[in-house]
Amino acid sequence: MSEALDPREATYVGRRTDGTIIKRPMSPHLQAYDMLQMSSATSITHRITGGAWAVGTLVFVWWLAALAAGPESFANVQWFLSSFLGILFLFGLTAVAWYHTLNGIRHLNWDAGRGFDLPTMYRSGRAVVIGTGVMTVLTWFIGIIAW
């Protein structure tokens, strides 16, 4: 066996009946696992959107720092945010934020011990996906009217 870097790897060492040492099988990995189930798909999307939103806050900090620095630097942020790339970024961030928020509420509901049964889990998952679409479009609709 090669050097084990992770203590968990020790639990994967097993022996066949003839005594030879083997690495025992791990739980199903990406290739063997259906990623399009409501349970796992909404779960990993929650993580991805959380990470994406965290990266997106860099622009929020840039915006605040530029506002504090003065009109010239603020004009730079406004230029980026009103560019094609900036609008695309903001639209993506809106969808990411609504998904993470709505699925976060779903998680808080689970934390309260409710909604664990499969039919409810599928229904709440669909509600989060549809809700994300509706809230993203609604946010931009109101945003453009307010512009």
Binding site: F74, A75, T101, G104, H107, L108, T139, G143, A146, W147
Partner: peptide, 24 residues
């Protein structure tokens, strides 16, 4: 923090509406 961020996020969305197209 997630419970605290729920109302703060809704307020931030409102702030974005107010600040859309606003000058320096």
């Amino acid at each position: 923090t997630s419970v605290a961020l729920l109302p703060l996020f809704l307020w931030f969305v409102y702030a974005c509406f107010v600040l859309a197209g606003a000058s320096y």
